[in-house]
Write a protein that binds this DNA or RNA. Structure first.
Length: 654
RNA sequence: GGACCGGUAGCUCAGCUGGAUAGAGCAGCUGCCUUCUAAGCAGCAGGUCAUUGGUUCGAAUCCAAUCCGGUUCACCA
């Protein structure tokens, strides 16, 4: 039995127990003020004896002894004062390798194996909002949204696991010029087509009209652009004419022509101005004004088409297993923020220029001046976001507010937080931009104009199909009903996709090759799912009664290496979840789940002299059988929970 | 030009709050189904951790400079 002392440590995880013990030892041995955080503890390298290693180099300045001597003193102290925790030690150079009592691991196993929600911490009374997904309603979801959705969902689940109350929020960009483009194209070219009449999913139908708009726009812009390049500026007048003239002249300057990048930039600007001059673009702008003025016809069309899109999005969300607690719509929030600006002016944080526009000066913080209200009193993106930040806080009073948004908006969020801090908004300090890298194709970014955008629904369908093909190829469909197979393929296909997008550190950009389908072998979701299913298959060898009477065995023989290794790994789960939350990175869990599955697979297959030495069913005695059953159950539960926090389901058989 | 991010095996990535001989997966090569599920296991091969300098007992990890790639610096969202 463990001492009361050791039991206290037991609840904190063994690494923390070791750190505390080591810090206490340093204080006692060398009369130094030393905290547990100053102790560096690593997992012992496999070539040395022991489970955890304390690095002692930094203690030598207190001990005034060689690292080896210091390690020996510390080891002896720990062994003498914590006999319930340590059973032995050895010192190699400055590394103190500690051997942990088997009883410690067994104790963890006994308590944890029956816990179906292992990893889940009790409520901590703190609240966090995670805003993610945030789609535009003019196009269907694509690969980039998938990374965003999976990331947001997973981080929210990780916070929940650590005891937070979480509000998953979705701020839908449901208004603006881009939606008017789809609407206008529908009016002009659809002949009244609807999702019902065409059989096309609503978000895709609306997206098709957006593409149609862009095509017409391109056709109309082309002659204007060539006229400008020829020096004919008849399409422009007034200030615009001056501007385009300047740009046109610039294209002939030798220094611009020599700098390809600069030339491309000037030409892009000419194109953009020309596109604005097209008839169809003018119409779209008129429609936007009508929308803002509340024109009933425009509003009705807008509501109808957005309705189609939501229907489509909801199908996709449902299939992905993504959900939200709170929806925000930009059509309701885009006017917010003006009162914040008024208050800012009164406080003297903001200032007004001659043309009546309102700005904040951030040059002291190494940034620029930032516009918050145009001269005509209308607001910009930033103003809206300021207002929405306050709205969210008024709604929930959360301590933390995460925004899952791609890293191209790093500057925006830096400025957003800074302005809120200067305005002394209570929400300011809790704002965190969970910035993630773009998903790129082998040849660079996805570009809608080049038609290289990977559609989310297509990709899901393809992955599920791949899962079906592989399952059939392996001849693993026996004993499943049609319905069960469909469900299995969803689980595997989505598992592969989610794991693929979550296994990489969020802040790094990543590459997706649409030519190769996502792998189902190696460091993948299906590998881990398979490992889980195999454990379940082992457990099916036993009756429910067998599985329920596992405690109370006497354990006299020492734990074998891989038995111990698996329990140790499982014991690290809580620490992993904390790290994943601190880093806001599901990748931490992905790596852990893979390691755990891989370790169990080795355990399962380990053979000596033709015998499976870790066999559960054919264990050498009843006690070992019970022990290994507990290990199998604990491992399965830990794998299942790990994947759950990544939004990935596990199959009982595959 | 300023700011920020990245550069680790052929490819995709871990490791980065300094610790022992830098790890996985894929691709390549060799073995293992008389097994509780081979979507697996065991092994071989593969490295100037972009470069240079510094900090120290110790640097892929921290600092500086340089090179390469990306993002951003709109009265767009």
């Amino acid at each position: 039995m463990l001492s009361k002392f050791a039991l206290t440590f037991f609840r904190m995880s063994v690494v923390i127990a070791i750190k505390n013990a080591a810090a206490t030892a340093i204080q006692a041995l060398y009369q130094q003020n030393f905290t547990a955080d100053d102790v560096s503890v690593n997992i012992t390298k496999p070539e040395f004896e022991g489970e955890y290693t304390v690095v002692v180099f930094s203690f030598t300045k207190f001990s005034r002894l060689k690292p080896e001597e210091t390690g020996k003193q510390l080891g002896e102290y720990l062994l003498a004062h914590y006999p319930a925790l340590f059973t032995g030690f050895n010192v190699v150079k400055g590394f103190l390798n500690l051997q942990i009592q088997d009883q410690y691991w067994i104790q963890y196993l006994q308590t944890a194996h029956s816990n179906k929600t292992v990893g889940q911490q009790p409520a901590n009374g703190r609240k966090v909002m995670v805003e993610y997904s945030s789609p535009n309603t003019n196009k269907p979801l694509h690969l980039g949204h998938l990374r965003n959705n999976f990331l947001g969902y997973s981080v929210a689940e990780i916070y929940k696991a650590n005891g937070f109350e979480v509000i998953k929020a979705n701020l839908v960009n449901d208004r603006g010029i881009h939606i008017c483009k789809s609407m206008l194209a529908w009016q002009m070219f659809s002949h009244g087509e609807t999702p019902q009449s065409s059989g096309i999913k609503g978000d895709h139908l609306v997206g098709d009209f957006y593409v149609h708009f862009e095509k017409v726009l391109r056709d109309q812009a082309e002659p204007i652009i060539s006229r400008v390049l020829d020096g004919n500026l008849k399409d422009f007048e007034g200030a615009e004419k001056d501007k385009i003239e300047k740009l046109h002249n610039a294209t002939h300057k030798p220094e611009v022509q020599a700098d390809k990048e600069k030339l491309a930039k000037v030409q892009d600007e000419i194109k953009e101005l020309s596109r604005n001059k097209t008839e169809i673009m003018q119409q779209a702008k008129i429609m936007l004004q009508q929308w803002e003025a509340g024109n009933p016809e425009v509003r009705a069309l807008w509501a109808t088409m957005n309705g189609w899109v939501y229907e489509g999005f909801n199908k996709t969300y449902q299939r992905l297993g993504i959900d939200f607690d709170k929806m925000y719509y930009e059509s309701n929030t885009y006017l917010l923020g003006k009162d914040l600006v008024e208050e800012g002016l009164r406080k003297g944080v903001l200032f007004r220029k001659e043309d009546n526009s309102v700005w904040i000066d951030l040059t002291a913080d190494g940034l620029d001046e930032k516009l918050l209200l145009r001269g005509d009193g209308t607001s910009v993106y930033m103003t809206q976001d300021l207002g929405t930040a306050r709205l969210k806080y008024d709604d929930y009073h959360m301590e933390e507010s995460l925004y899952v948004v791609a890293d191209e908006q790093n500057y925006h969020f830096k400025v957003l937080k800074l302005i809120l801090q200067k305005l002394q908004e209570p929400c300011a300090d809790g704002i965190y931009h969970l910035s993630y890298g773009m998903v790129e194709l082998p040849h660079g970014r996805m570009k809608s104009r080049e038609g290289t955008v990977v559609d989310a629904d297509d990709l899901i369908e393809e992955m599920v199909k791949t899962a079906a093909e592989q399952t059939e190829e392996l001849g693993k469909t026996k004993g499943f009903s049609e319905e069960e197979l469909r469900e299995l393929y969803e689980t595997i296909g989505l598992g592969a996709m989610k794991f693929f997008l979550l296994k990489v550190d969020p802040k790094k950009k990543m590459v997706f090759n649409p030519e190769e389908s996502i792998d189902l072998h190696g460091f993948t979701g299906p590998f881990i799912q398979y490992s889980y299913a195999r454990i379940k298959s082992i457990l099916r060898e036993f009756s429910t009664a067998d599985l329920e009477e596992l405690t109370g065995y006497s354990h006299n023989t020492a734990l074998l290496p891989m038995e111990k290794e698996l329990i140790m790994l499982c014991e690290q789960f809580n620490a992993i979840l904390l790290e994943a939350q601190r880093e806001m990175s599901p990748a931490v869990i992905a790596n852990y789940a893979f390691l755990l599955a891989q370790t169990f697979n080795s355990f399962y297959a380990k053979k000596e002299e033709g015998k499976y030495i870790y066999s559960v069913r054919d264990a050498e005695n009843e006690d070992k059988k019970k022990l290994r059953l507990q290990i199998a159950i604990l491992t399965a539960n830990t794998i299942k929970q790990s994947l759950k926090f990544m939004g990935i389901a596990v199959p009982e058989r595959m």
